[in-house]
Design a protein around this nucleic acid. Sequence first.
DNA 1: GGTAGACCTGGACGC
DNA 2: GCGTCCAGGTCTACC
Length: 329
Amino acid sequence: MPSTLTITPPADFALGRDVCSYGYFLLAPNRWDVPRRTLSRVADLPGGPTLIAVRQRAGAGSPLIVASSRTLTAADRPALRAQVSRTLRLDESAETIAAFHAADPRWRDSGRGRLFRSPALFEDVLKTVTSCNVTWPGTVAMNRRLCEVLGARVDTPRGPRFGFPSAAKVARTRPQTLRARCRVGYRDARMVELARLFAKPPSRGGVDQARLEDPATPDDAVHATLMDLPGVGPYAAANIMQLLGRYARLPLDTESVRHGRMVLGMKGASADLMRRLHRHYEPFGTHAFRSYWFEIWQWYESKKGPAESWDQDTVSTAFTGAVLKKLGA
DNA sequence: GGTAGACCTGGACGC
DNA sequence: GCGTCCAGGTCTACC
């Protein structure tokens, strides 16, 4: 029997804008239904997997209705509420977003400020690793296969849907399986090792997720911990930090260099350009990443239309380096 | 501390 | 349709 959960978001929260704000909303198991303006995915809950669909009753600030394909147990409800809140950054109040707009007023009219993420840190970390040293369609394919091969299955009238695999599940998987069936390449052993670290309690050498999520933990300490993780280098660490709500560091990559050249008119070698990009966003202080990211996102939308209207099945091919260069030409 | 090369997949391109 | 080239961030070895 299906059941629903109602969540009251911050007063400025707008589902379409705040879901379609970062590329991970395009990665499995997430699905943004353009005509229905609904986010769906298979959620991993104490009572087992279920397909959830999140919609907003009316305009910004109106209640979020979370529908589940099966009856939610008493234990499921708080877990689902926490997962949806993390994914949609409902912890960031209207006042928090207003503080960002005070630092960078360019985004005040659109209200942009929240960035989509995953219901759990492990999924954010793995998604970041699958985005390293690979083109965007490769990232899309790896996440789809990870879900199809290792994720929990939920059958629906429209066919099966798969959830994102848990750390425990990936930890039990052989690297060869990840390489052969999920096509993750040389990332295989690193991903299994990461999963083992996330599956273990901190007392036994596992990742202390609560410490990383705690706003009281200094940025430098979080950064140092992330840099020690297998498969995580400077780019990945900075990206995971923004996914943790720490926006002072910039995860600069080749896409940043393209942005610097095409949009900001910078010239010079990549290494020099990276240094200039850091200086360029320094005035935004603890909001630097959001200022940087929404510039990039605005450029994408100027070329491909509003992200809320992107067709998930075809948009991935629109974000290869070659296509972006042509778009900017 | 800085740098070169290997790692692996899949898209682009030439034939 | 096939073969080759190249993009992409991390890691290791080496200077």
